[in-house]
Amino acid sequence: MAAFHREVIITVHTDVQSFAVANLLRRPAAVEAGGFVVGFDPTTTSQYVNYATPVPGAEPTDRDVSALIEAFRERGLKPRLEFAPNAAPAVEPALLRAGFTTEAVHEYLVCTPATLAVPAGAIGVEVPAGEEDYVAIDAALAEAFGGEFPASPEGAARLRRTQEGGGAVRFVRAGDGGCAGAALCSAPAEGTAELAGVGTRPAHRGRGIAAAVTAALAEAAFDGGALSVWLEYSGEGSHRVYERVGFRPGGTRLYLALEG
Protein backbone atom coordinates (compact mmCIF):
# COMPACT_ATOMS: atom_id res chain seq x y z
CA MET A 1 0.00 0.00 0.00
CA ALA A 2 2.80 2.45 0.86
CA ALA A 3 4.54 1.85 -2.49
CA PHE A 4 1.27 2.40 -4.36
CA HIS A 5 0.66 5.71 -2.55
CA ARG A 6 4.15 6.95 -3.47
CA GLU A 7 3.56 6.11 -7.14
CA VAL A 8 0.33 8.13 -7.18
CA ILE A 9 2.02 11.18 -5.65
CA ILE A 10 4.83 11.09 -8.23
CA THR A 11 2.26 10.91 -11.03
CA VAL A 12 0.50 14.00 -9.70
CA HIS A 13 3.79 15.92 -9.60
CA THR A 14 4.62 14.85 -13.15
CA ASP A 15 1.19 15.84 -14.48
CA VAL A 16 1.57 19.33 -13.02
CA GLN A 17 5.08 19.70 -14.40
CA SER A 18 4.09 18.38 -17.83
CA PHE A 19 1.28 20.90 -17.80
CA ALA A 20 3.72 23.70 -16.92
CA VAL A 21 5.83 22.84 -19.98
CA ALA A 22 2.83 22.70 -22.31
CA ASN A 23 1.40 25.92 -20.93
CA LEU A 24 4.62 27.92 -21.37
CA LEU A 25 4.93 26.65 -24.93
CA ARG A 26 1.69 28.53 -25.64
CA ARG A 27 3.36 31.88 -24.91
CA PRO A 28 3.88 34.18 -27.91
CA ALA A 29 7.70 33.86 -27.90
CA ALA A 30 8.41 30.56 -26.14
CA VAL A 31 11.99 29.25 -26.23
CA GLU A 32 13.25 25.70 -25.67
CA ALA A 33 16.82 25.32 -24.43
CA GLY A 34 18.77 22.56 -22.69
CA GLY A 35 15.85 20.77 -21.08
CA PHE A 36 14.03 23.99 -20.21
CA VAL A 37 11.09 25.86 -21.70
CA VAL A 38 10.92 29.64 -21.27
CA GLY A 39 7.54 31.31 -21.76
CA PHE A 40 8.43 34.78 -23.01
CA ASP A 41 5.63 37.26 -23.68
CA PRO A 42 6.82 40.45 -25.44
CA THR A 43 3.78 42.42 -24.22
CA THR A 44 5.06 42.54 -20.62
CA THR A 45 8.28 42.48 -18.59
CA SER A 46 6.56 40.89 -15.59
CA GLN A 47 8.65 38.16 -13.98
CA TYR A 48 5.41 36.35 -13.17
CA VAL A 49 4.69 35.96 -16.88
CA ASN A 50 8.22 35.59 -18.28
CA TYR A 51 9.71 32.56 -16.54
CA ALA A 52 11.10 29.10 -17.28
CA THR A 53 10.35 25.54 -16.26
CA PRO A 54 12.21 22.25 -16.83
CA VAL A 55 10.84 19.31 -18.75
CA PRO A 56 10.06 16.39 -16.43
CA GLY A 57 13.18 14.39 -15.67
CA ALA A 58 15.57 17.07 -16.97
CA GLU A 59 19.23 16.75 -15.91
CA PRO A 60 20.74 20.05 -17.05
CA THR A 61 24.48 20.58 -17.38
CA ASP A 62 26.17 23.79 -16.27
CA ARG A 63 26.31 24.77 -19.95
CA ASP A 64 22.54 24.26 -20.23
CA VAL A 65 21.97 26.53 -17.24
CA SER A 66 24.29 29.18 -18.71
CA ALA A 67 22.31 29.11 -21.97
CA LEU A 68 19.09 29.50 -19.99
CA ILE A 69 20.47 32.52 -18.13
CA GLU A 70 21.60 34.10 -21.40
CA ALA A 71 18.12 33.71 -22.91
CA PHE A 72 16.80 35.93 -20.12
CA ARG A 73 19.72 38.37 -20.08
CA GLU A 74 19.54 39.15 -23.78
CA ARG A 75 15.94 40.25 -23.26
CA GLY A 76 16.73 42.32 -20.17
CA LEU A 77 14.75 39.99 -17.89
CA LYS A 78 15.50 38.33 -14.57
CA PRO A 79 16.24 34.60 -14.89
CA ARG A 80 13.46 32.87 -12.99
CA LEU A 81 11.88 29.42 -12.82
CA GLU A 82 8.75 27.81 -11.41
CA PHE A 83 8.50 24.02 -11.21
CA ALA A 84 7.53 20.94 -9.22
CA PRO A 85 10.92 19.78 -7.90
CA ASN A 86 9.94 16.13 -7.52
CA ALA A 87 9.36 15.92 -11.27
CA ALA A 88 12.96 16.95 -12.04
CA PRO A 89 15.16 16.35 -8.96
CA ALA A 90 18.43 17.22 -10.73
CA VAL A 91 17.34 20.75 -11.65
CA GLU A 92 17.46 22.50 -8.28
CA PRO A 93 21.10 21.54 -7.51
CA ALA A 94 22.21 22.66 -10.98
CA LEU A 95 20.52 26.04 -10.56
CA LEU A 96 21.89 26.57 -7.05
CA ARG A 97 25.41 25.95 -8.37
CA ALA A 98 24.84 28.77 -10.84
CA GLY A 99 23.85 31.21 -8.09
CA PHE A 100 20.06 30.93 -8.16
CA THR A 101 18.34 31.38 -4.81
CA THR A 102 14.99 30.20 -3.52
CA GLU A 103 12.32 32.84 -3.96
CA ALA A 104 9.46 30.78 -2.55
CA VAL A 105 8.08 27.29 -2.03
CA HIS A 106 4.36 27.08 -2.64
CA GLU A 107 1.98 24.23 -1.94
CA TYR A 108 -0.58 23.40 -4.57
CA LEU A 109 -4.01 21.82 -4.27
CA VAL A 110 -5.79 19.56 -6.75
CA CYS A 111 -9.50 19.14 -7.51
CA THR A 112 -11.11 16.37 -9.55
CA PRO A 113 -14.71 15.85 -10.69
CA ALA A 114 -15.10 13.40 -7.80
CA THR A 115 -14.07 15.92 -5.14
CA LEU A 116 -15.64 19.10 -6.56
CA ALA A 117 -18.29 20.56 -4.25
CA VAL A 118 -20.23 23.45 -5.78
CA PRO A 119 -21.32 25.80 -2.98
CA ALA A 120 -25.02 26.34 -2.47
CA GLY A 121 -26.25 29.90 -2.72
CA ALA A 122 -27.48 32.60 -5.03
CA ILE A 123 -24.16 34.15 -6.11
CA GLY A 124 -24.29 34.64 -9.86
CA VAL A 125 -21.05 33.83 -11.72
CA GLU A 126 -20.73 35.23 -15.23
CA VAL A 127 -18.64 34.81 -18.37
CA PRO A 128 -17.21 38.13 -19.65
CA ALA A 129 -19.44 39.48 -22.40
CA GLY A 130 -17.09 42.01 -23.98
CA GLU A 131 -14.17 44.37 -23.63
CA GLU A 132 -15.79 46.38 -20.85
CA ASP A 133 -16.02 43.26 -18.69
CA TYR A 134 -12.38 42.28 -19.33
CA VAL A 135 -11.22 45.78 -18.36
CA ALA A 136 -13.35 45.68 -15.19
CA ILE A 137 -12.02 42.23 -14.25
CA ASP A 138 -8.42 43.30 -14.79
CA ALA A 139 -8.96 46.39 -12.62
CA ALA A 140 -10.69 44.38 -9.88
CA LEU A 141 -7.89 41.82 -9.73
CA ALA A 142 -5.30 44.62 -9.57
CA GLU A 143 -7.17 46.07 -6.58
CA ALA A 144 -7.63 42.64 -4.99
CA PHE A 145 -3.88 41.99 -5.08
CA GLY A 146 -2.93 45.42 -3.76
CA GLY A 147 -1.55 46.72 -7.03
CA GLU A 148 1.05 43.95 -7.32
CA PHE A 149 -0.22 43.39 -10.86
CA PRO A 150 -1.29 46.84 -12.12
CA ALA A 151 -4.30 47.06 -14.40
CA SER A 152 -3.42 47.61 -18.04
CA PRO A 153 -4.77 47.13 -21.57
CA GLU A 154 -2.31 44.23 -21.92
CA GLY A 155 -3.72 42.59 -18.79
CA ALA A 156 -7.26 42.81 -20.11
CA ALA A 157 -6.07 41.41 -23.44
CA ARG A 158 -4.44 38.43 -21.72
CA LEU A 159 -7.73 37.69 -19.96
CA ARG A 160 -9.52 37.75 -23.30
CA ARG A 161 -6.93 35.42 -24.84
CA THR A 162 -7.42 33.00 -21.95
CA GLN A 163 -11.17 32.87 -22.48
CA GLU A 164 -10.95 32.68 -26.27
CA GLY A 165 -8.05 30.21 -26.28
CA GLY A 166 -9.77 27.32 -24.56
CA GLY A 167 -9.41 28.50 -20.97
CA ALA A 168 -12.00 30.27 -18.87
CA VAL A 169 -12.53 33.58 -17.07
CA ARG A 170 -15.36 33.92 -14.57
CA PHE A 171 -16.47 36.85 -12.42
CA VAL A 172 -19.16 38.10 -10.08
CA ARG A 173 -20.66 41.41 -11.10
CA ALA A 174 -20.72 44.23 -8.55
CA GLY A 175 -23.78 46.38 -7.90
CA ASP A 176 -22.27 49.21 -9.93
CA GLY A 177 -21.99 46.95 -12.98
CA GLY A 178 -18.26 46.37 -12.58
CA CYS A 179 -16.47 43.36 -11.11
CA ALA A 180 -16.60 42.31 -7.44
CA GLY A 181 -14.26 39.34 -7.81
CA ALA A 182 -12.91 37.00 -10.45
CA ALA A 183 -10.44 34.31 -11.42
CA LEU A 184 -9.19 32.52 -14.52
CA CYS A 185 -8.27 29.00 -15.55
CA SER A 186 -5.89 27.93 -18.32
CA ALA A 187 -6.86 25.74 -21.22
CA PRO A 188 -6.32 22.09 -20.25
CA ALA A 189 -3.03 20.38 -21.14
CA GLU A 190 -1.70 16.96 -20.15
CA GLY A 191 -5.06 16.20 -18.54
CA THR A 192 -4.99 19.09 -16.09
CA ALA A 193 -5.50 22.87 -15.94
CA GLU A 194 -4.22 25.64 -13.69
CA LEU A 195 -6.65 27.90 -11.85
CA ALA A 196 -5.11 31.25 -10.90
CA GLY A 197 -5.71 34.88 -10.00
CA VAL A 198 -8.56 34.27 -7.55
CA GLY A 199 -9.20 37.75 -6.21
CA THR A 200 -12.02 39.71 -4.57
CA ARG A 201 -12.10 43.47 -4.15
CA PRO A 202 -11.80 44.37 -0.44
CA ALA A 203 -15.29 45.87 -0.21
CA HIS A 204 -16.85 42.60 -1.40
CA ARG A 205 -14.95 40.06 0.68
CA GLY A 206 -16.58 37.58 3.04
CA ARG A 207 -19.54 36.89 0.75
CA GLY A 208 -18.43 33.61 -0.86
CA ILE A 209 -17.30 35.15 -4.15
CA ALA A 210 -13.92 33.36 -4.24
CA ALA A 211 -15.54 29.98 -3.63
CA ALA A 212 -18.19 30.62 -6.28
CA VAL A 213 -15.77 31.59 -9.06
CA THR A 214 -13.33 28.81 -8.13
CA ALA A 215 -16.04 26.14 -8.34
CA ALA A 216 -17.41 27.59 -11.58
CA LEU A 217 -13.96 27.54 -13.18
CA ALA A 218 -13.31 23.96 -12.08
CA GLU A 219 -16.62 22.94 -13.64
CA ALA A 220 -15.69 24.73 -16.87
CA ALA A 221 -12.31 22.98 -16.98
CA PHE A 222 -13.89 19.56 -16.44
CA ASP A 223 -16.44 20.33 -19.17
CA GLY A 224 -13.47 21.18 -21.40
CA GLY A 225 -11.88 17.78 -20.88
CA ALA A 226 -9.58 18.31 -17.88
CA LEU A 227 -9.29 15.38 -15.49
CA SER A 228 -8.07 17.65 -12.69
CA VAL A 229 -7.58 21.32 -11.83
CA TRP A 230 -4.79 22.63 -9.61
CA LEU A 231 -3.95 25.91 -7.95
CA GLU A 232 -1.43 27.43 -5.58
CA TYR A 233 -2.63 29.17 -2.45
CA SER A 234 -1.32 31.61 0.11
CA GLY A 235 -2.60 31.68 3.68
CA GLU A 236 -4.88 29.44 5.66
CA GLY A 237 -7.92 31.56 4.83
CA SER A 238 -7.67 30.84 1.11
CA HIS A 239 -6.79 27.20 1.81
CA ARG A 240 -10.08 26.77 3.66
CA VAL A 241 -12.00 28.36 0.78
CA TYR A 242 -10.48 25.98 -1.76
CA GLU A 243 -10.86 22.97 0.53
CA ARG A 244 -14.59 23.67 0.85
CA VAL A 245 -15.06 23.40 -2.91
CA GLY A 246 -13.08 20.17 -3.23
CA PHE A 247 -9.37 20.98 -3.57
CA ARG A 248 -6.96 18.62 -1.81
CA PRO A 249 -3.17 18.72 -1.16
CA GLY A 250 -1.15 17.80 -4.23
CA GLY A 251 2.49 18.77 -3.67
CA THR A 252 4.86 21.73 -3.84
CA ARG A 253 6.20 24.07 -6.50
CA LEU A 254 9.58 25.75 -6.19
CA TYR A 255 10.39 29.30 -7.35
CA LEU A 256 14.05 30.08 -8.04
CA ALA A 257 15.55 33.34 -9.33
CA LEU A 258 18.98 34.73 -10.18
CA GLU A 259 19.47 38.21 -8.77
CA GLY A 260 21.81 40.86 -10.11
Score class of each variant (00 low, 15 high):
5 H>D: 15
6 R>V: 10
7 E>F: 10
8 V>T: 14
10 I>D: 15
12 V>G: 13
16 V>I: 15
16 V>G: 01
16 V>D: 00
19 F>G: 02
21 V>P: 00
23 N>P: 03
26 R>A: 13
27 R>T: 09
31 V>G: 13
33 A>C: 13
41 D>Q: 07
45 T>L: 14
54 P>H: 09
55 V>P: 02
56 P>D: 00
58 A>M: 01
61 T>H: 05
62 D>K: 04
62 D>R: 08
63 R>W: 05
64 D>W: 12
73 R>C: 04
76 G>W: 13
77 L>E: 01
77 L>P: 10
79 P>N: 07
81 L>T: 14
83 F>H: 05
84 A>V: 15
85 P>F: 05
85 P>K: 07
90 A>P: 09
92 E>Y: 03
92 E>N: 07
94 A>R: 08
97 R>F: 12
98 A>R: 11
101 T>G: 15
103 E>S: 13
103 E>V: 08
104 A>P: 03
107 E>M: 07
109 L>V: 10
110 V>M: 11
111 C>K: 04
111 C>M: 13
119 P>L: 04
123 I>Y: 05
124 G>K: 11
124 G>A: 15
125 V>W: 11
126 E>M: 11
126 E>L: 14
129 A>W: 02
131 E>T: 11
132 E>S: 13
133 D>C: 06
141 L>E: 06
141 L>W: 09
143 E>P: 07
144 A>F: 06
146 G>P: 08
146 G>R: 07
149 F>E: 12
150 P>D: 05
152 S>Y: 07
152 S>G: 04
153 P>R: 02
157 A>C: 06
158 R>D: 04
160 R>P: 00
160 R>S: 11
164 E>Q: 12
164 E>A: 15
165 G>M: 08
166 G>Q: 03
167 G>W: 00
169 V>K: 06
180 A>D: 08
181 G>L: 03
182 A>D: 01
185 C>K: 00
187 A>M: 05
189 A>R: 10
196 A>R: 10
198 V>G: 05
199 G>C: 06
200 T>Y: 07
203 A>V: 11
203 A>K: 03
206 G>R: 06
207 R>E: 14
210 A>Q: 03
214 T>V: 12
215 A>W: 01
215 A>D: 01
217 L>W: 10
219 E>L: 14
219 E>A: 13
224 G>A: 15
224 G>Q: 14
227 L>W: 06
228 S>D: 10
229 V>G: 04
229 V>C: 13
231 L>Y: 06
231 L>H: 05
233 Y>P: 04
239 H>E: 13
242 Y>T: 03
244 R>H: 13
244 R>C: 01
245 V>L: 09
245 V>K: 04
247 F>Q: 03
248 R>T: 09
248 R>A: 11
249 P>V: 04
249 P>G: 09
254 L>R: 15
257 A>K: 04
258 L>R: 12
260 G>R: 13
